[in-house]
Design a protein around this nucleic acid. Structure first.
Length: 844
RNA sequence: GCCCGGAUGGCGGAACUGGUAGACGCAACGGACUUAAAAUCCGUUGACCGAAAGGUCGUGUGGGUUCGAGUCCCACUCUGGGCACCA
């Protein structure tokens, strides 16, 4: 971004105060808008009164307003500014509604970027993180966000993460965590585990080596134990966007199906598969197993072609998107399974798209009625058999494409003629009665793997003992503190080279034992921080009774990119905490606002892409209010916002006009209260506009969260005030009421300038404690309104009618309108539609 | 590949419940002020036809429903997000 030129023209603001307008009462106020001075004064006022620090008060309506806390990446970026401003506007608006508003801030402080910085610049992750936090905290304060800083949380501090270690041990006791093998991306050159993000086109980002799938033992949390509740409760969450709920429903992916087993020639163990389409069972023409499947391994022993293929299968990363888009490859194993009903031989293949860790590691293939199976069968010339026909009797050819709909069974022996439900039940019954299978409910959702082979994370509180196996660290030995003074090289975790960290004794038998050196996924910290803000200083418990007061969060705001993982994990943790007796509510977030991303050059702003825009330069040039205003005005909050450097000036210009309008009015002297009974038409019109605008902005902010149209409405009103030229006492009273309303209504968005303008208008009170303005219905009343007249749906004229005009008199006026009459003349009117208050449509 | 969004002037967007498409702002152009520039103020600005009145077209593409569609339905195109180790 090029702001060098800007600072030349904008860096030299006129010195505060021009003698002509200076008053002794407000030394830094003048008709020249000086954002730096105005904002500093407001900040000092808020800081010294500590007005955003809140204490629980059972007698008051609480409002917990929260933003997804930032990762301390170095400095604020536009995405932060956008979401934090949205949340701040809501918080300040709710305060004006009389609520006791909690708006806390903290740091999602563990994560990979700190390790990357350590590798690149040799700074220890802890030092880098704490320095970033200090810098970014300063930036947030400069933006004027209404935070209760006394509740600040930093997740890399032991006093924070000790409680998630504690919860983990509680979950261990309840059987909600377990250890199993799972796949990671292994970089064979750097000898390290890579994040999916660090794999580019199947190669390690630094080493450029082909990444391998490797299985290692890892800890899992049983989120699937809550799958059904997490799914069902979505139906009772009206405060969440439908799109997010739909994404979560699909992610959880509940399906009802049948688990059934096939006999394998020469094997004792049967091969089990899960299917939601048992009705297509007679169409199975082959089966596929994962490369890691024991049957594949066994077949590879005497066959170098198969073992080469299996090796090749493992030379790929573990991301689902990769698996789904890569070329589907497979090889026959030379082993046959037996079809459980027909007894036919079904060839067994090994395939690269089947994963051992998902489900049973084996699938039955019905190429006639499954798109992926169809493609694979075509490629490998496997038979495709039609066993389902359309219910409407039409014919299809499975040689052209798989038929995916439910239908009637054909070519299925005794099951022929059955529909989906009947066939499902008949075949499920067959397996259940023969003991070879059973009906099951299956979830796409998998248990949450929380182990990370990284240094900069919270240590997993487990001790491995040769005799006692994996033992959780006892509560009185928590926290397991992550050493912060380490040599970080990037090859493996330094914890693995620190005997002083991992050497310990078994809590159960006392023998020498070894600590777990893996750390938690950073999503663990972000899955409960919202509750900890209620009682950040609680020493003896994860949460105390204050959490019951503040939770659930009334308004949660964050990026749509978190629609699934973070929000689902948080919903899971909230339930774990509930079952531990720590909170009451099952759901952590009552209302969710997912703000769109700030894009630059059509892509998400990220350090990795190098397309970030630094808000600091804008704040330096124009002040925080201009940046806040622009972010609110540029787009509705849910939309992606394509960043453009232009347009910020427009917001700045508006604030200058706003400032000048208030001061010009105030310089002219006092103004009394409005007496509606003596107003005449232009005064009534402005007053009507004022109260219309109050009505609109209240709805825009309070209900719709449409901050962009709220700003537009305020701009319109200010334009109307500018055109209003009435120096009479009544005129000045109306203008004063109008300006007071604009200041109040813009104050959540641009709080600093409004703080100053409120005083300039002669108000002695503190702006942030003012109630939100209410509109006067009497001021909205009108005698006449304009209606649009259409002929056959096309706009042909406008008429002005009395508000209470009858339908007949409206039609009469409409037909009399000159242009309308021209289009109607000589035609028979078929019908006339009158939409009260809007339009007349004459159909000819 | 699968799931969830989006597409409206030169640009960001408005139109909330199917009822005046383009509010508000940016940019551009013209004018005022100025020695000049910046800042500020005033005006014009969807395309086309017309002297004007007014008309025709127009909300990614192609169909449909309706008196009336940016909005609802069907089929596409392009594009953003997510896909379990970025946060």
């Amino acid at each position: 971004m090029q702001l060098g030129g800007l600072s030349c023209t904008l860096g030299r603001f006129p010195a505060p105060g021009m003698p002509r307008f200076q008053t002794s009462k407000e030394p830094c106020m003048s008709v020249v808008y000086n954002p730096e001075a105005v904002e500093k004064a407001a900040r000092e006022q808020w800081d010294s009164s500590r007005c955003f620090e809140v204490k629980e008060d059972a007698g008051k309506d609480k409002f917990y307003c929260l933003t997804m806390f930032p990762y301390p990446s170095g400095k604020l970026h536009m995405g932060h500014v956008r979401v934090l401003t949205i949340s701040d506007v809501i918080a300040r608006y709710q305060r004006m509604q009389g609520k006791l508003v909690l708006q806390p801030m903290g740091w999602d402080a563990f994560g990979m970027p700190a390790e990357n910085a350590a590798i690149q610049r040799g700074v220890p992750p802890a030092k880098w993180t704490y320095e970033n936090i200090d810098y970014m905290r300063g930036q947030l304060k400069r933006m004027g966000y209404a935070y209760d800083w006394s509740r600040e949380i930093t997740t890399c501090r032991p006093e924070y993460y000790r409680w998630e270690q504690w919860l983990f041990t509680r979950m261990f006791a309840k059987g909600l965590v377990y250890r199993k093998n799972s796949v990671v991306n292994w970089d064979p050159v750097d000898q390290t585990v890579l994040a999916n993000e660090q794999v580019i086109d199947g190669r390690g980002w630094r080493s450029d080596a082909l990444v391998e799938r490797r299985e290692i033992p890892q800890w899992f949390m049983k989120i699937t134990a809550y799958a059904d509740e997490l799914l069902r409760e979505l139906d009772n969450m009206p405060g969440w966007p439908e799109s997010v709920k739909t994404m979560q429903r699909n992610w959880i992916g509940r399906s009802e199906g049948v688990e059934l087993s096939f006999e394998v020639a020469g094997e004792d163990e049967r091969l089990t598969v899960y299917t939601t389409r048992p009705d297509t069972l007679m169409g199975v023409t082959y089966m596929a197993v994962a490369a890691e499947h024991p049957l594949a391994r066994k077949a590879a022993e005497g066959n170098s072609e198969i073992s080469t293929f299996i090796e090749a299968c493992q030379k790929t990363d573990a991301a689902e998107a990769t698996l789904e888009t890569m070329e589907k490859k497979g090889m026959p194993l030379g082993i046959d399974a037996m079809h459980p009903i027909s007894g036919d031989k079904v060839p067994l293949w090994v395939a690269n798209f089947v994963l051992m860790s998902y489900g049973t590691g084996a699938v039955m293939a019905v190429p006639g009625h499954d798109a992926r199976d169809w493609e694979f069968a075509k490629k490998h010339r496997l038979p495709i058999r039609q066993v389902i026909a359309p219910t409407d009797g039409s014919t299809i050819d499975v040689a052209d494409a798989a038929y995916l709909e439910h239908g009637v069974l054909v070519n299925s022996g005794k099951y022929d003629g059955l529909d989906f439900d009947a066939a499902f039940n008949a075949i499920a019954d067959f397996f259940e009665s023969s003991g070879l299978g059973r009906r099951t409910v299956h979830y796409r959702l998998r248990d949450w793997g929380v182990s990370r082979q990284r240094y900069w994370g919270a240590p997993i509180p487990i001790i491995y003992c040769d005799d006692c196996n994996a033992v959780p660290v006892p509560e009185d030995q928590l926290p397991v503190v992550l050493p912060e003074d380490v040599q970080f090289t990037g090859v493996g975790s330094p914890l693995k080279d620190m005997p002083e960290f991992y050497e310990t004794s078994c809590p159960e038998c006392g023998k020498p034992a070894r600590r777990e050196t893996d750390t938690f996924d950073t999503f663990v910290e972000s899955s409960w921080y919202f509750a900890r803000y209620a009682c950040p200083d609680a020493k003896d418990a994860m949460l105390d009774e204050r959490a019951a007061y503040w939770m659930p969060v009334d308004q949660y705001t964050g990026g749509i990119e978190h629609a699934i993982l973070h929000l689902l994990y948080s919903r899971f943790f909230q339930r774990v905490m509930r079952d531990e007796g720590l909170v009451q509510s099952a759901e952590p977030f009552t209302n969710l606002l997912t703000q769109g991303m700030v894009l630059k050059d059509g892509a998400k702003m990220s350090k990795a892409k190098g397309n970030t825009v630094d808000p600091q330069a804008l704040v330096d040039a124009y002040g925080a209010d201009t940046v806040r205003l622009f972010m609110m005005f540029a787009a509705p909050p849910e939309h992606a916002l394509e960043w453009s450097d232009e347009g910020v000036q427009g917001s700045y210009r508006f604030l200058k006009r706003f400032w000048a309008a208030v001061h010009t009015h105030a310089e002219a002297g006092a103004a009394g209260p409005v007496d509606p009974s003596i107003l005449v038409e232009p005064q009534l019109a402005l007053r009507r506009k004022v109260h219309q605008t109050i009505q609109k902005i209240s709805d825009d902010i309070g209900r719709r969260h449409a901050f962009n149209t709220a700003v537009a409405a305020a701009m319109e009103l200010l334009n109307a005030i500018g055109r209003f030229d009435d120096k009479s006492a009544a005129g000045r009273a109306v203008e004063r009421e109008a300006l007071n309303a604009v200041v109040l209504m813009l104050s959540p968005m641009v709080p600093h300038i409004c703080n100053a303008l409120w005083r300039a208008l002669g108000n002695e009170s503190v702006l942030i404690d003012q109630p939100w303005p209410t509109f006067d219905a009497a001021a909205l009343e009108q005698n006449e309104i304009d209606l649009v007249v259409q002929v056959n749906g096309k706009l042909r004229g406008k008429i002005r009618v009395a508000v209470d005009a009858s339908r007949d008199s409206i039609i009469e006026l409409a037909l009399a309108e000159e242009n309308v009459a021209r289009f109607v003349s000589g035609n028979k009117i078929k019908k006339t539609i009158v939409v009260p208050g809007r339009l007349v449509n004459v159909v000819i």
